[in-house]
Amino acid sequence: MTLTSLAGKRIAITRPRVQSVELANELSNHGALPLVIPLIEITEPSDEGFAFEHAMKNIRQYEWVVCTSANGSHRAAPYIAKDASRPKLAAVGDATAAGFQQEVDFVPSQATGQTLASEFPLTNGKVLLVQAEKTSGDVATTLRQRGVVVDEVAAYQTVIRKLETEEIEQLLAADAVVFASGSAIRSFVSQCGARYHGAIVVIGEPTHLAAKELGVNVSAVATAPTAQAIAHALGGVFR
């Protein structure tokens, strides 16, 4: 079904380009004009990936590998065998599960870190938690409170991407801006300030919470990270 309310709307997508293709295509199918303007970059962690490489080379000591983002599962996937010798795999949501490039063993009922930690199957084996370098630590804390033995490792870090003047002007002129993470919102606020007066659509409750903490008014929350769910949320804004 075509979302006619999106026709002609300029929608800025702020994720890294490689992660924006599917949403850009979905929006184009509804007649929108997608603008891919990444606000963050995904880079090696500050130790240049040493700890991550070490953990991956010793992956057989873990009963589970748990990823809290698609960036993490994409990084981990090449190190994980696709046979019975591999650890069990857990992902925070469907997009993260897809990053493993094979069937996963556990996805929580809601795509949030807290739900993942609360619903994660209890185990006596060690768990490797693959995540960004800077996190709230809530997932690991909740798992440990439930008696799970957890090793944390940073697979990547997110850094603010400095925008060109033309990109800032495009963002400010957009009818809506889509955010997938608190890092992207922080980048937006630091570079665009309070000058934007269009619609703000965020993906998931963690991003919504980050927006609230930064004083950003959110027009709609996409309840799932799929292109269809995001387009539906945007369509509701302009209906």
Score class of each variant (00 low, 15 high):
V130L: 07
Q102K: 02
S85V: 08
K88W: 02
G235H: 01
D138G: 07
T2R: 14
A95N: 15
L172N: 04
A184V: 06
L116T: 07
L27V: 14
I11T: 04
D175Y: 11
G137T: 12
T14L: 08
S181M: 06
A55V: 08
V65C: 02
A174R: 01
A111E: 12
A84P: 00
L171N: 02
A84D: 03
V18H: 15
R195W: 02
A176G: 05
S69L: 01
T141H: 14
A7P: 01
E164W: 00
A132W: 01
I168P: 00
S181D: 12
P87A: 07
C192L: 12
G198F: 03
E164Y: 05
E63H: 09
P34D: 12
Q228R: 15
P45Y: 03
S190G: 01
I230M: 10
V149N: 14
A184W: 01
F179Y: 09
W64E: 03
T43M: 06
A199D: 03
E169S: 09
D94P: 10
T226K: 03
E167N: 06
V216A: 10
R146V: 05
V237E: 11
S136I: 04
T2W: 08
E103T: 10
T207E: 05
A70V: 14
E152P: 01
G193K: 01
Y156D: 02
S73G: 07
R60D: 13
D151E: 14
A222E: 08
A90S: 12
V65Q: 01
N29S: 13
P108N: 12
R146L: 06
D83K: 04
V21F: 13
W64N: 04
S109W: 13
R86P: 01
G204N: 03
I59T: 07
C192Q: 09
G49Q: 04
G125I: 09
I203F: 04
V92H: 03
E44A: 10
L3R: 10
P78A: 14
A154Y: 00
F120D: 02
V201G: 07
T4Y: 04
T43C: 06
V127W: 05
I11V: 15
A233W: 07
S20N: 13
V218M: 11
T223W: 00
F120V: 07
H208F: 15
T207A: 08
T4D: 08
T96M: 07
V107S: 09
A222W: 03
K126L: 11
Y196H: 02
R186F: 06
I40E: 00
E164F: 03
A222P: 05
A84K: 11
R15N: 04
V149C: 10
S181Q: 11
K212H: 13
T158M: 11
A180E: 06
A174C: 09
